[in-house]
């Protein structure tokens, strides 16, 4: 069963930005795109355990702050080495200005 969790308010995330969200001892990254769409991926880079929310978000791409591996945060696709494994993604919705993610 899908477990919808309220993560933050939309306004907590800068446009073209990301924040870290920890839940049940797991860590996620929640992104706000340039078009105000909201996305959620696993929080750590697949190359090394680095929090992606510290990385630069440009358009729909997040870049790992350590080794510059890059992902499309909408699909989780690894776009640039050294990251070669895709990120897991999670569905999101915005309800009354709150961001909810399905972590099932």
């Amino acid at each position: 069963m899908t477990d919808w969790v309220t993560a933050c308010k939309l306004d907590d995330i800068e446009q073209e930005g990301a924040i870290r969200f920890d839940h049940n001892s797991r860590t996620y990254a929640i992104y706000r795109g340039p078009d105000d769409s909201v996305w959620c991926t696993a929080g750590l880079c697949t190359h090394e355990a680095i929090h992606l929310a510290d990385g630069l978000v440009m358009d729909f791409e997040v870049e790992c702050p350590k080794h510059s591996g890059a992902f499309d945060y909408r699909t989780g696709e690894a776009l640039r080495l050294p990251a070669c494994e895709n990120l897991r993604t999670y569905p999101t919705e915005i309800v009354n200005g709150e961001v909810r993610v399905a972590l099932g």
């Binding site: 680095i50 929090h51 510290d54 990385g55 630069l56 870049e63 702050p65 350590k66 510059s68």
Partner: peptide
Amino acid sequence: AGNSTAREVKL
């Protein structure tokens, strides 16, 4: 602290 300046250095 940590990677706190990484984003700005990248920009």
